[in-house]
Design a protein around this nucleic acid. Structure first.
Length: 595
RNA sequence: GGCUCCGUAGUUCAAUGGAUAGAAUGAGGGUUUCCGGUACCCUAGAUACAGGUUCGAUUCCUGUCGGAGCUACCA
């Protein structure tokens, strides 16, 4: 049982004996005692005064006495206003460090002990390279997957690839017109960059044509609809839908280039997927299910043939599910994909969609519709909504060339990591490949930590200067302390000091910051999973690291005065590095041994 | 217009309804006979505004002001 639950139970017993009133253990609010007061845990007694019929401080006084007399973990107490500060037996902490905290899987719940969850993230269009916004998306989705796994969920990581539609046809048309057979091999460009280039080329040609038409006397709206290159793209889409062989071939080729490019980027980012869904496979399957919904009376078909769902009871409007010509809209497709996934994974408990907050309305509707189609899992489905990443000069706009490219940004981080490492000179003896691995881990930690430490639902500022900072509340700061701790442990081993399993000093005031944080980990993971919020893990990693760094400064680990103290410090260092490693791995951040 | 989210030091971010609102950065000052100084310590600096609920409100409710997003037979 967790310590705080023990104390709640103890408090409930004490309350019963003092005031002859039974209250549920959960009514006793236990929190860490603030540093400026004496004690380890604090019981807030204001809410209890009602039941004890005594003033808060008198209630606290009586409870404190009873809890000490219970002869359990509580050794002493003091009362400040209505706060009962409890002093716990430090031996508890010592034993905890040697037992629970020593388990290799401390902080994790057993695999398979929680339901199967599907997490969707990334899901880019196939006409443009990945950018900064995708990084936040991928890091979030990947991290949440890991957090859910640590909570015992089976997790299937997926993405839906938007591989069809007018956008990809635009790139195809431009490539046919201007490409002269250019390929990733012939150009040396990554596939996604090459296709992106033709998407831009299309846009330029289109604008020129529109301007030409306007100059020729056509009004703007008509020109925008009749520009020949646009008509050609639309015709290409029609041919694609008809299964025209040449069109489909080119579509496959160009999408293949994009996928190869994306795969490289994902590998650099350190994210991966268990299963891919392609819009071209799923975009038609929602239609049948919508028509089934009509038969069940969940949806309404109008005289013109269009199908609608009425969500006014849920505070929303009516929403179109099928056009009057019977074709699918975006929502139809998402319904189909969702149902396909429930079919693919029969024990699936819920789906988590990592998608920007501009689509909150869409997902509200989607979940309601799934519910109307009889999927009770719908109420547990979750839109992992996140805010926009803004730049100091404002929003990213591809038109204005202010998009931050994911590959370029990561390369820049790696380069800076290399420069700083060269100065520090700690990587001698490592091969070039090993060094490169270190630069990548350090650079990536800066980026991931920077994007994940902010509450996902908030818009955030991406300041390029601050993001590459290696000092302060940053990934590299955390890595540095990990590496330093590991270095101490290696040295201990080299000196023949095995990791102690017994005979450690009882932790005192100097150690309690760190011990308390180590003890918090399971609660932090649980809350992060419940709220789908990796920022909680990031903040915990930072707090723990700061506590260790400060401790390290004032205490020589291996040079402690006596053996018991040294053993405690070695154990603390080991628990620090191992739990930090878990915390960071939940953020998708891999730690180096040196940097 | 309606709906959703956000508003905390100069800046970027924290704070299950709990005690004197924490960090980082920037500014100023200090620390090294040390296991990795990419470190540590000290100083100054903030809850947009007005009500309400509560023993207690950054947190919950209402309103005002400010910012973002959604409100397509686009995806």
């Amino acid at each position: 049982m967790r310590l705080d639950q023990q104390l709640q139970a103890l408090a409930a017993q004490a309350f019963q004996s003092c005031f002859d009133a039974a209250l549920p253990a959960s009514d006793f609010s236990i929190q860490k005692t603030r540093k400026e007061f004496a004690g380890d845990r604090t019981l807030v007694c204001f809410p209890l005064a009602r039941h004890s019929r005594m003033k808060p401080d008198a209630t606290a006084e009586a409870l404190g006495q009873a809890m000490v007399e219970a002869d359990g973990p509580v050794l002493g107490y003091n009362v400040v206003k209505g706060f009962l500060n409890l002093e716990l037996d430090p031996v508890l902490w010592r034993d905890w460090l040697l037992q629970e905290a020593a388990h290799a899987d401390y902080g994790r719940r057993p695999a398979g002990s929680a339901p199967h969850v599907m997490v969707e993230y990334s899901s880019p269009n196939t006409n443009k390279p990945l950018h900064l916004g995708h990084l936040r998306n991928n890091f979030l989705g990947h991290s949440v997957s890991r957090i859910l796994e640590a909570q015992g969920h089976t997790v299937t990581k997926v993405q839906i690839i938007n591989d069809r539609g007018i956008h990809i046809c635009k790139s195809m048309v431009a490539w046919r017109k201007f490409g002269e057979g250019e390929t990733p091999e012939s150009s040396g460009l990554k596939g996604d960059k090459l296709v992106g280039k033709y998407y831009v080329a299309f846009d330029q040609a289109y604008k020129a044509e529109v301007q030409g038409l306007i100059d020729g006397g056509m009004d703007k709206a008509a020109a925008e609809k009749q520009a020949p290159i646009l008509l050609e793209a639309q015709e290409t889409l029609r041919l694609w839908e008809d299964g025209d062989a040449a069109t489909v071939d080119l579509w496959k080729t160009m999408n293949g280039w994009v996928y190869a490019g994306f795969d490289t980027t994902y590998a650099t980012m350190g994210v991966e997927f268990d299963k891919l869904y392609y819009e071209s496979d799923t975009y038609l399957i929602g239609k049948d299910r919508v028509m089934e919904g009509v038969e069940r009376g969940a949806f309404e078909q109008r005289e013109d043939g269009s199908v609608w769902v009425d969500l006014s009871e849920d505070g929303l409007d009516e929403k179109l599910l099928l056009r009057q010509d019977g074709t699918a809209v975006y929502m139809t497709q998402d319904i189909g994909t969702a149902l396909l996934r429930f079919q693919d994974v029969p024990d699936l408990d819920r789906q988590v969609y990592t998608v920007g907050n501009e689509q909150e309305y869409h997902f509200k509707v989607l979940f309601l519709v799934l519910g109307k189609l009889g999927f009770e899992q719908a109420q547990r489905c979750h839109h992992l909504s996140y805010g926009m990443v803004e730049l100091p000069e404002g929003k990213m706009k591809s038109r204005e060339g202010t998009v931050v490219d994911a590959d370029d940004l990561m390369d820049e981080m790696f380069r800076i990591a290399r420069d700083i490492a060269a100065e520090a000179g700690k990587l001698e003896g490592l091969s070039d490949a090993e060094q490169q691995e270190v630069f990548q881990r350090v650079g990536l930690s800066a980026l991931k930590y920077y994007l994940l430490k902010v509450d996902p639902k908030k818009n955030m500022m991406f300041d390029p200067k601050a993001s590459i900072d290696f000092y302060g509340n940053t990934g590299p700061f955390i890595l540095f302390n990990y590496v330093r701790g590991r270095s101490v442990l290696r040295k201990a081993e080299a000196e023949g000091l095995a990791l102690p399993t017994d005979g450690i000093a009882t932790p005192g005031a100097d150690e309690m910051d760190m011990v308390g944080l180590l003890h918090d980990l399971p609660d932090v993971v649980a809350e992060a999973a419940e709220t789908y919020n990796p920022a909680l893990i990031a903040n915990w990693c930072y707090d723990l690291t700061k506590a260790y760094s400060s401790y390290y400064q004032d205490h020589s680990i291996l040079g402690a005065d006596d053996e018991a103290a040294r053993n405690l410090r070695i154990v603390l260092t080991e628990r620090f590095t191992r739990t930090l490693n878990l915390g960071m791995s939940l953020l998708g951040i891999a730690l180096p041994e040196r940097m």
